[in-house]
Amino acid sequence: MDNWLEVTVETSDEEMETLAARLTMNGAEGLVLEDETDFKVFLEENRQYWDYVDDALLERMKGVARIKFYVPDDEEGRAQMAAALEGIGNPVSTAPLKEEDWAYGWQKYYQPMAVGERMYIVPEWERGKPVPQGRTAVYLNPGLTFGTGSHASTQLCLGLLEGRVIPRQKVLDLGCGSGILSVAALNLGAVEAVGVDIDPKAVGVAYENAQLNGIGRDRYTVRAGDVLSDAGLVEELVQAGPYEIVLANIVSDVIIPLSAQVHRFLAPGGTFLCSGIIDSRADEVADALEKNGLEILERLERDGWCALAARAGRPG
């Protein structure tokens, strides 16, 4: 079967469970429940990734409460749909869906994207197409995990990064996610990078994205762990340093305590680039950086987000 019908039944949070039971009793299979409340709970339970959630997705989920199921797009399938919907008066819509859409339909949302003055983020399936003159390509598999370059916080951090990377520098990427920032730094000329993320799944993802860019493990190391609580990991990173650039595209509640120990990672005069900061907390983060001996060099803002560049001062 190559063609399917996606059947969407509108409902409410309160009615969803009852409606799902009725659809199941009527023979509907493979129900997909989409609920803004559940989506927000997921975000709350995974706060370390919330800054990577695409703004358009947040908007699409606003007020959503619906159930989807799928039937073959033929006479028999339409009969199955009619039976599943018997006695149900909720609004219903249908959309044709080809089999390849199951695996590849989401790719249409990811197109090559110019970022800053020098960067060009390219989904892996667009490899081989021309890269604009003067721009450096960064190839990613957006389906792997968070961190595709589409979020304002990531773009701001890339904007700060591209003007500061020079050859022979070492880079530390804290909260590396997909590896987009550290891979970009290596593509721009950094000699070596280390990525760290609290999610073990990010390790394999970052390595895969590095491989897409021709970067091997001789130049790129990724570790799982929490630099705020794992003293052994911190010591390991310190021994592997120092780093001319330290990146942290995370959240304010992590950047603020991190600012107290980032000097341990930075080379003298090194630069700390932090993003993922809601603009209403930017002054609070800047104050924490300055309190811990960092000099603010640059501040970028976009769409309610802020990124800061700071330089390591002399100890004491």
Rank of each mutant, 00 (worst) to 15 (best):
L5E: 07
S12N: 03
D13P: 06
E14I: 08
M16D: 01
E17F: 00
L19V: 09
R22W: 06
N26L: 12
N26P: 03
E29D: 12
G30I: 10
L33I: 11
D38R: 15
K40M: 13
L43C: 15
E44C: 00
Q48K: 09
Y49Q: 07
D55V: 09
L57I: 15
E59V: 13
G63P: 13
V64P: 02
V64M: 14
R66S: 14
R66G: 03
V71Q: 09
P72T: 08
D73M: 10
E75T: 14
E76T: 12
V92S: 07
A95V: 03
P96E: 11
E99D: 14
E100I: 10
W102S: 01
W102N: 01
K108F: 04
Y109T: 09
M113K: 14
M113S: 10
R118H: 11
I121F: 05
P130S: 09
G134A: 08
Y139K: 05
P142A: 08
L144N: 08
T148R: 04
G149C: 04
H151Y: 05
A152M: 02
A152V: 13
A152D: 12
A152Q: 09
T154G: 03
G163T: 03
R164H: 05
V171P: 00
D173S: 01
D173H: 00
C176S: 10
G179F: 02
G179S: 04
A184P: 01
L186K: 05
N187I: 00
N187L: 07
L188V: 05
V191T: 04
A193N: 07
D197Y: 02
I198K: 07
K201D: 12
V203M: 03
E208H: 15
Q211A: 15
N213M: 08
I215Q: 04
T221C: 09
T221W: 06
R223P: 00
D226P: 06
A231W: 12
V234R: 15
V238W: 13
G241I: 12
P242Y: 12
P242H: 11
E244C: 04
V254P: 09
V254R: 08
P257L: 06
S259Q: 07
S259V: 07
A260Q: 13
V262D: 05
H263M: 02
F265G: 08
L266E: 04
P268L: 03
F272L: 13
L273C: 03
G276A: 02
I278T: 04
D279Q: 12
S280M: 04
D283L: 11
V285N: 01
V285H: 01
E290A: 03
N292C: 03
L294A: 02
L297F: 00
L297V: 11
R302N: 08
D303C: 01
A307E: 10
A309N: 08
R311E: 15
G313S: 09
R314M: 09
P315A: 13
